[in-house]
């Protein structure tokens, strides 16, 4: 069963064509790692999935809902697609608990008590039980990113989209965030992860997608892609990064 199915997705910024016809199907429970050079369109693809970026053409089908069609209840469907950003984007005016409960209360209409109970449970799971009343801004990068993951999880998503979640972290904090993501993957969460952490991709990904200049050039199991890539550009990219 597929959670997300995209067909022939196109996106341009002015004259710059960033996505040149992307097809991808993500099955339930699957972990997809999206790799590729800077500017190849990875973030744009991810942002087109939850319509933070409006595609110019093509279809995004999420659990049977055509997101690219007018009239869908986008806000309701977005709660089912958690997104984690490279720069955390925690709500600066709220503490950790509020960051993870405000969406539940305002969007899912859960009561304050229920929302906070759920938020607290998830925060403990990601190892932040001691920080629920801290203002977001006093946390370390790794802690912030774990809060961001908890915030998305609190909405009970069916898929999690990660856009380079560890790229702006100090090296010693990368592990704590990747551990949370591994745990999530093991629990069966469907995930699309844009990452430069190749060891994570090797270990966790069911499939690795290599993007190059707005197209998916190669797609396959991590062992295939990393051990013997078929495309010359994939080889070049992996040589550069590994």
């Amino acid at each position: 069963m597929s959670v997300v199915k995209i067909d022939n997705l196109h996106k341009s910024f002015g004259d710059l064509e960033v996505l040149k016809g992307i097809d991808l199907e993500v099955k339930k429970g699957e972990v997809i790692c999206l790799i590729g050079a800077s500017g190849s369109g990875k973030s744009t693809l991810l942002r087109c999935l939850n319509l933070l970026e409006e595609p110019d053409a093509g279809v995004v089908n999420f659990e049977g809902n055509i997101l690219t069609e007018p009239g869908v209840n986008l806000n309701k469907l977005r709660t089912k697609m958690g997104m984690v950003f490279q720069s955390f984007n925690l709500f600066n005016n709220m503490n950790v608990l509020k960051n993870c409960s405000v969406g539940q209360m305002k969007v899912l209409k859960r009561s304050k008590a229920e929302a906070e109970k759920i938020a607290e449970k998830i925060l403990i799971e990601v190892g932040l039980g001691d920080f629920i009343f801290s203002p977001a801004r006093v946390l370390s990068g790794g802690q912030k990113q774990r809060v961001a993951i908890a915030r998305a999880l609190a909405m009970n998503p069916d898929i999690m989209l990660f856009d380079e979640p560890t790229s702006s972290l100090d090296p010693e904090m990368v592990g704590e965030v990747l551990d949370v993501m591994k745990k999530l993957a093991n629990q069966g969460m469907t995930m699309i992860v844009v990452t430069h952490e190749m060891s994570f991709a090797k270990e966790v990904a069911d499939r690795v997608v290599f993007m190059d200049q707005g197209v998916i050039l190669e797609i396959g199991k991590p062992e295939e892609i990393f051990a013997n890539p078929k495309e010359e550009r994939t080889k070049e990219f992996l040589n550069r990064i590994l």
Partner: peptide, 8 residues
Amino acid sequence: EAARSIGM
């Protein structure tokens, strides 16, 4: 973007 991504 973060707020919109959780459905606000």
